[in-house]
Nucleic acid binder design. Structure first.
Lengths: 237, 237, 237, 237
DNA sequence: GATGAATGAGGTTTCATTCAT
DNA sequence: TATGAATGAAACCTCATTCAT
């Protein structure tokens, strides 16, 4: 990041271009992004960009793949093994939200891709892999919770995953209009904290409602949300 | 709507332009939209468009306001008065989801506006009004539920509203990438039905968890989701 | 040509662009031609060119069609009716050569089109028409000559037409390299004159060889080659 | 030709580059040719190409010289000595046509060079040589024919050479547009055969017309046109 | 009021060529 | 020597907007 660009360093150059492209696409979307802005940011000449990437679209696809790769990496890095189902689910919710907070390009890249009706993901084989590992994780937690009687049965893991993502993603992706409507700065640390708790709350309430062992007391938030300064609970028991 | 365009019919012309613009913006976003495509769709001359709207941006803002107006209208049309809190909340969830299904431009307009960091909503006074009425509705239902002991207390209506929206909005807005990842056609009628129920389920589970009267049995879906054929329950007690 | 461009004169503008494009394409071929050079010559802005013609290629096709149209017009303008076969054939040869001299863009446009393997002519319906009229003319002359016993029989009109064209076209199209090789300025008036006579000579020698009435004495060149100062005969009887 | 490229084999490398360049220039002309396409075809690095040839233009000139050299070689290889004038002339016509058929790059290289108004030939001393030998051949045949009374006198050898070339060159160089216009595949073997005979026919008709011994019976085509199956006469006496 | 010709600025892409490694 | 990264210049094309008719 702080290394000065070396000459004739193809990999480094490509990295710089990709980083610049990611920043630009994540600020402006595909159509709003400007190749000129990317080359300025990457400190390369226009032709060099086209030497490494055939077109704006190819560059965009590469950035998109990187975005999915980022998400996959974070999901795989989640240490859930050995946790109780409730705690594991809580950590999963928090980590999902945290990813959207810390990798804001994810949201715009996905919005952009969906604006284009998934045209590019459809072609990229890399992306399908994303869910394979996640799916296993999710199913393990759910079946363990069910076995122990703390989760209801019959939960559709896909619906649940979509919901967990939705609760954090939408909050962040639409924060500008929502902030206007509700006159509340959704990015303020306190509000992020509250949202994090709310997401966990809704998810666990859903999973434990009607479970054999009945409603669990929602746990306190995990002591340290990943990679962020300590958060304080505002939750009542 | 079916009247043929008359000359000197400024309102009709403006309407046609707005409708065309909405269609174009809702397909391509702001940057992807083309003024030329709008005039072709609206069957007007370029000059006429610029006569009625000063610029692409102003036209976009007008469409954006229309979008919010649509949402406001639908919210006001919701007949919730006199319903029990649980049923009212259920209907509110379903109606919210239904709006996103039936007015798909809402999603892209809002994504686009948030891509632009809410630059335009900020300037438009019309938009702030959206929540005023909704807020009252929501608070009425929540306090009534609390009073009757069927909802927990201390629910933040803003968080809840965001969540209810999120659960439907994200599902639809990201359906292209999600469909790829999960290999499931999220727009298929059956899947929409399941999603509708899931949203109600999560919302009510959250509200009733820890409520004095304990977990309520989630009600069957409302007999007729707005403008759609009857839906059947797939839920277990 | 000497009119100054009027504003908002679509036809005039298109004409100016086409004329400029013809000049540029006829100087440089398709790949060597520069859109920038065309707009400078036509005194229009780049965007205006693209307003009237969708692309460089479409512009090229339009010029190509014009070229064929020019040839067709000249062929139809040929007053051959009522002439003796020998004289008619002589005039046809001379007129063909004269066309290549006076419309030099014809040669480069056709060379260019053939360099591109006829990709554009293939798509243009206009061009096939070229031969229909010519074919009739040619067959009339040939059969009349045969009937009168001055031309041999069994002449293939297509081969003959190709030959008549070839004798003038190649001389002009390859005049730069030929001039080098032979150290003779092929465009000099005297040399053009000699060539014109040679073409007539070869053609008539071919047609009259073995004809019933035997070898005719080649006639003196027509008094006035179309639009050119009088030519003198250098031929021996 | 079938040797695999060795390192340090400058000649082989140069040859490969030239062959690739010839193929590329002969397909696309000078402006349409791409240096990148040449290096890919030649399987050399960009630097190597520029090491051996200073520029695209120099490379083009080298290819052009090769093209002329090819023609010169073929002309010198023609075994005309000892033949009767009529037969010699027939063989010369056929060989000329055959060269254009078998070395198709000749046509595009010359068209290209003439498109550029002979700029490069002008500088190259090699090219002037082309005609020196040809000239002798031609004059020998003509004077012998004249002496024997089978050819007319006063024939301009330059005009005649241009005509003989023209009759074959134009037929092939413009075959795409001509094929369209006449709806006849000019490259089909039968049509090539007819053309070959037609060229001989026209040439001999011209030379023998008005010769002291009168019109000769055009001879049957030479038994074996170079590298092609026997051709049959279609001519009537 | 309606048409579409005209424009300036800027978009993406290409090409021959050079040069560090 | 061989590779392919790097470059400057310029290519074709697009877009929102204005303005004569």
């Amino acid at each position: 990041m702080s290394e000065k660009p070396r000459k004739r360093d193809a990999i480094g150059t490509q990295e710089r271009i990709l980083a610049a492209a990611q920043a630009e696409f994540a600020r402006k979307g595909y159509d709003g992004a400007r190749v000129d802005a990317i080359i300025v940011r990457a400190k390369v000449s226009k032709n060099l960009l086209y030497h490494h990437f055939r077109s704006k679209e190819e560059l965009y696809v590469k950035v998109l793949e990187r975005t999915y790769e980022t998400m996959r990496r974070r999901q795989e890095a989640l240490p859930l093994a050995g946790l109780e189902p409730v705690e594991a689910m809580q950590k999963l919710c928090e980590a999902t939200f945290q990813t959207f907070i810390e990798e804001p390009e994810v949201i715009i890249m996905m919005n952009t891709e969906n604006l284009h009706r998934g045209r590019h993901v459809a072609k990229s084989p890399i992306i399908r892999q994303l869910y394979s590992r996640l799916s296993t994780t999710m199913e393990t937690i759910l079946s363990e919770g069910e076995k122990r009687g703390v989760f209801r049965s019959g939960v559709d893991p896909v619906e649940l995953y979509i919901s967990i993502s939705a609760l954090g993603y939408f909050y962040l992706s639409n924060r500008f209009t929502l902030s206007m409507i509700f006159d509340r700065d959704l990015k303020a640390p306190d509000n992020l904290e509250r949202r994090r708790a709310h997401i966990v709350d809704m998810t666990l309430a859903y999973l434990t409602a009607g479970a054999p062992l009945g409603q669990v007391i929602p746990p306190a938030p995990s002591a340290e949300p990943p990679e962020r300064p300590a958060a304080r609970s505002r939750r009542k028991a």
